[in-house]
Design a protein around this nucleic acid. Structure first.
Ligand code: SF4
Ligand code: SF4
Lengths: 145, 145
DNA sequence: AGTAATTAGGATAATAATATCTAAAAAGGG
DNA sequence: CCCTTTTTAGATATTATTATCCTAATTACT
């Protein structure tokens, strides 16, 4: 609803990296564990390296890792580099470009929602993602055992 | 952010029809007035007829019109028939399918936002769209004159 | 130095979204 | 009945997204 596959894969891969921040992870490993198309993922990781969100190393013991602490990388950052964030500043209705002085239909109803989405992306870091995943694991264990 | 071009065009066309509910409008007219690709729009209008949201008539004096009152047709209905609404029930994060008992990361943060979007689409009718447009026109006149 | 491992980058392929074109069918007006 | 207008439907074209493949470059280890 909010981002492309490419961006979704980027987020999932970076979340995986955040969960294994103690070492480098290979593209192949991430693809297998997260069930992502391997070659496509490699491309995505390359662009994330170019955008300085990741660091990479070639050869044996090579792989990818976050270039900075997980709590400083937000979903917004990732979307910004992969998809761009223009759509978050455009109308849901699509009648004209956004402009507070000359609002289009439903401005007052829609703009707050759009702001909430933007805010959610900006306030959610990879650290939050891993925390949420840990929680899920706990709940899952409690339920089954 | 929420729907495809096709759906956006559908909404804009149907809003136009709601504004001119007293008569039938030709595809060409709608395309010109709303600045939409004409042939693509024709296709879209055809599917809306098949889905019973519009009625059509061929030949001279032909064209398209809403099949029921503007206030009974919501953005949600339109999206449902054009794009489908599955994405409104899926995760923003994309890690797994939605399931309240086994929530994925950020469920509690994201789900309310998603519900707000859904609600917005369900509670916004074509009549609301025309009302908002009228309002805009008024404001625009007051500002310039 | 040699070899295996791994990322980087370019070429290509497959699929989906967006857009156009053309001919056929239906309706109205002469 | 014929001509014009307009929708309908199907074929085709274009572009963007998603995905794969292949080769080169880099590095680690022996
Ligand atoms: S003014 Fe409001 S309704 Fe109009 S484009 Fe901006 S956010 Fe959308
Ligand atoms: S985060 Fe919540 S809304 Fe999203 S898939 Fe998970 S349970 Fe569903």
């Amino acid at each position: 609803m909010i981002y492309s596959k490419e961006c979704e894969y980027a987020i999932r891969a970076m979340t995986y990296l955040a969960q294994h921040a103690d070492r480098r992870c290979m593209a192949k490993e991430i693809a297998e564990k997260e069930n992502l198309p391997q070659h496509f993922l490699s491309k995505i990781l390359q662009t994330l390296v170019r955008e300085k969100l990741l660091e990479s190393a070639k050869g044996p013991k090579g792989g990818f890792q976050l270039s900075k602490p997980a709590k400083t990388i937000t979903l917004y950052h990732i979307k910004k580099f992969v998809d761009g964030v223009d759509d978050l500043n455009e109308c849901a209705v699509g009648l004209t470009k956004c402009n507070d002085e000359m609002p289009c239909p439903l401005h007052d109803d829609f703009k707050p929602i759009r702001e909430k989405v933007k805010n959610y992306l900006k306030s959610t870091s990879l650290a939050d993602m891993t925390k949420a995943l840990d929680n899920k694991k706990k709940i899952s264990k409690a339920a089954s055992g």
